[in-house]
Design a protein around this nucleic acid. Structure first.
Length: 269
DNA sequence: AGCTCATGGCGAG
DNA sequence: TCGCCCTGAGCTG
């Protein structure tokens, strides 16, 4: 259940667990059996993240391309891997430990060229050092689509999902329904800066926390609340609850087939 | 046992 | 914009 911060974290975790050593690969579920056999026993050479896309590199030059989708996930364990439970698309093991991949939207063996093609069609990723926010601004500032939809469009920005988009717009007091072309340059600069800071923090924490110290439930004298996603947030999945800043009921609506959350009072046009 | 929901994305029309 | 794909948890009955 991942936005970009989790994918970058997984790249580091896979590299730490398997990097520079041979890895045993299997597909207990069977749906990745031929590909797992092809990489079985190779050196695990690299792990890279581009937005929500994860690439695991192997010595013969191919990559395992993973996209977790809505509910895919990795788990890591120490020691020998236990009997498979449930649908394990890919399991990797070495003498120290193992990793299991379940429910990915994508799990495919690809060439270097295919990997580059995936990276090329993505917008800048706030978590990557080589990201150029100007690419995103060009698309944003030319579009009649809403800022809410643009922030989730991976061709515009890579790695931002439903939680970060809701929280960044809240923190900057921006109405999600405004068109991209109506954004001011300074507002875009602030959005990018917030994404870089919040997502970096998310990589370290492994969860999304966006509430400023002065607005935490403790500071405000409210009962603590942590959502199922595991972080402390202003509006994401807080529909009909009081805004942590102004007390107005947080609103929700379906917006381009995803749930959008915002405070109608703090986020005005 | 069956439904509903979830931090995502693709292709068809 | 819709339907569909991936899987498991947390309900309801």
């Amino acid at each position: 259940m991942p936005e970009g911060h989790i994918i970058h974290r997984l790249a580091a975790e896979n590299l730490r667990a398997f990097g520079g050593r041979p890895v045993r690969a299997t597909s207990p579920q069977g749906r990745f059996a031929d590909e797992a056999k092809a990489i079985d026993g190779q050196l695990f050479t690299d792990a890279q993240a581009f937005g929500k896309h994860l690439f695991l590199g192997f010595e013969e030059g191919e990559w395992v391309h993973v996209h977790l989708g809505l509910y895919g996930g990795f788990t890591f364990g120490e020691g020998p891997a236990p009997e498979p439970v449930g649908m394990i698309r890919l399991r990797m093991e070495n003498d120290e430990g193992y990793a299991e991949l379940r429910g990915p939207n994508t799990c495919a063996l690809v060439t270097e060229a295919q990997k580059e093609a995936v990276a090329a069609r993505l917008g800048p990723d706030p978590l990557r050092a080589d990201a150029d926010p100007e690419d995103a601004w060009r698309r944003m500032s030319a579009s009649r689509t809403t800022v809410a939809a643009l922030l989730m469009d991976q061709k515009v920005l890579a790695g931002v999902g439903n939680v970060y988009r809701a929280e960044v717009l809240f923190r900057l007091g921006i109405d999600p329904h405004r068109a991209g072309r109506e954004l001011e340059r300074r507002e875009w600069d602030a959005i990018w800066a917030e994404l870089v800071a919040l997502m970096r923090e998310g990589v370290g924490a492994g969860r999304i926390d966006t509430v400023r110290p002065e607005h935490t439930p403790e500071a405000m004298g409210r009962p603590p609340r942590v959502d199922d996603h595991g972080g402390e947030v202003y509006v994401y999945r807080r529909a009909a609850m009081p805004c942590l800043v102004c007390g107005t009921e947080v609103r929700t609506e379906e917006h381009a087939a995803r749930n959008l959350f915002w405070c109608p009072s703090c986020q005005k046009a």
